[in-house]
């Protein structure tokens, strides 16, 4: 019979990744430094890829001249209205699909058929329907936000523990009270996760819609800078979009922290 002798070694290490904030910051700063150094030593031509300092200078000029706010305010208005419309209708439809059998199959069939359509392809149609002004751009955003919101909300409703709904029914709560008190709060984590996706989709669609027939807006600004090979301003516009995405993600994070503090 084989004999075993010796200490027992710890073997359960690893598979537990940790976040290190300093590593994220160091990586980004390192990349920026390498990027700047490559341009400063002439390794990369500024027309192909302007260095960070040139982009920062362009951003500064845009800010002090008021140009940035002119474009950003137009974009923010479209983003807010389009996203809100898509979200309100999407949550409503998602709840209806999640709650009522009569709407479930027809609703999901519509979502399955229309969700995969690239919304950019519909912009010309929206221009015919809603005109070249704000209507078509807002409709593009709302339409793009609507479908993922329906899917996130319906999935959230499906995932609410049936036992909790039965509890509500067993206490004789009305349908409205069960929806308000059990289903909506239970589906909220999924709905808020959906917001993270839909805000990103909204920013992508915003830029695309503004590139077609807009005079103001970050998308229009980026297009115009690109047409003039003004790569400093082009990248400045892209940085603004990236920061916009970060701010929106931060707001949703705060919202999650406030509304889901029970987790």
């Amino acid at each position: 019979m084989p004999r075993l002798e010796g200490p027992v070694h710890f073997r359960a290490a690893g598979f537990a990744p940790k976040d290190r904030a300093w590593a994220s910051a160091a990586t980004l700063l390192g990349l920026l430094a390498m990027w700047q150094a490559s341009a400063s030593f002439g390794l990369i031509k500024s027309l192909f890829l302007p260095p960070p300092v040139a982009i920062a200078t362009a951003l500064w000029h845009l800010t002090v001249s008021g140009e940035l706010w002119k474009h950003l305010s137009a974009s923010l208005m479209r983003l807010f209205v389009g996203w809100t419309l898509g979200t309100v209708f999407g949550v409503g439809m998602g709840l209806a699909v999640g709650l009522w059998s009569a709407l479930r199959s027809p609703g999901m069939a519509i979502v399955a058929a229309l969700f995969p359509i690239p919304k950019i392809a519909l912009v010309p149609l929206f221009i015919i329907w809603f005109g070249i002004g704000e209507g078509s751009k807002i409709a593009t955003l709302a339409f793009g936000v609507f479908f993922p919101t329906v899917i996130a909300t319906a999935g959230g409703v499906d995932n609410v523990a049936r036992g909790l709904i039965r509890m509500g029914q067993s206490f004789g709560l009305s349908t409205g009270a069960i929806v308000r008190g059990i289903i909506l709060p239970g589906a909220l984590p999924a709905i808020l996760s959906g917001f993270r996706v839909t805000t990103s989709i909204a920013i992508v669609l915003l830029v695309a819609a503004e590139m077609i027939g807009a005079e103001r807006g970050i998308g229009a600004f980026v297009l115009s800078a690109g047409n003039l090979y003004d790569t400093d301003n082009l990248l400045a516009g892209i940085v603004v979009l990236s920061v916009l995405g970060l701010i929106v993600a931060w707001i949703i994070g705060r919202l999650e922290r406030a509304l889901l503090s029970w987790r």
């Binding site: 036992g163 909790l164 039965r166 509890m167 008190g181 059990i182 709060p185 239970g186 909220l188 889901l260 029970w262 987790r263």
Partner: peptide, 9 residues
């Protein structure tokens, strides 16, 4: 209920 059925929120 066996599993308490409490609303965690």
């Amino acid at each position: 209920f066996q599993d308490f059925a409490l609303l965690p929120w």
